[in-house]
Amino acid sequence: MQSLGDAFSMLGALDHDVMAIAWLSLRVSLSAVLLGSLVAIPLGALLAIVTFPGRPLVVAVVNAFMGLPPVLVGLIVYLLLSRSGPLGALGLLFSPGAMIVAQTVLAIPLLAALTRQIVEDAHRELDEQLRSLRLDVWQRIRVLVFHLRFSLVVAVLAAFGRAISEVGAVLVVGGNIDGYTRTMTTAISLETQKGDLPLAIALGILLIAIVLVVNGTASAMRAYTMRLYP
């Protein structure tokens, strides 16, 4: 409890370094979720409306990959981006770019699986209408994704939550370099290791506050656009 009290008093005195760390966390995770959404929402919607042999298996695999261990993703991305690995020439390892790649890989299955479920449920109801419009697959996906845009926001927020809160992947591929790849979660982990529990808790509270602000902003935008385009 002593630690918790110290933590709150520290929040009042957040310095420039902590703000830079919070900002890095935010841009890495938002970039990863944006890139992941561009790939996973169309793919998830496609998977929702097409039928092919083995589809239940693909759905099961995508669902299961929502639980990919971040540290495993980190290790695989590390091996790919290492100078000795296939993508080593990019020189991305131990940089914010590497962290975006790893978190994008983490976000994609979650986004695809949730999109698939949301779109599939709606598609069942709208199937006949869509048929009567004689739309091709891509047109249907566009109509469905637009129609479901407010529900899909939840999938995007879930992916953001997964990205900004994970430590295993960014630690391995980013290296927790002071002033360059240190994020909120790797900083919390580092301060815990150094036994500075009040500072670790203060950073944790700040991280939760950031997640709250992002979710609040998304809700506000959603409410606003719903009023404009009901």
Partner: peptide, 25 residues
């Protein structure tokens, strides 16, 4: 729909703008 697409595009550009430099100094 056009308005939404434009605002999504704006958000996208803004996000990529904040994306960290991909290559080391």
């Amino acid at each position: 729909m056009a308005v939404l697409r434009r605002s999504l595009l704006a958000i996208g550009v803004a996000l990529l703008g904040m994306a960290p430099t991909l290559t080391p100094a």
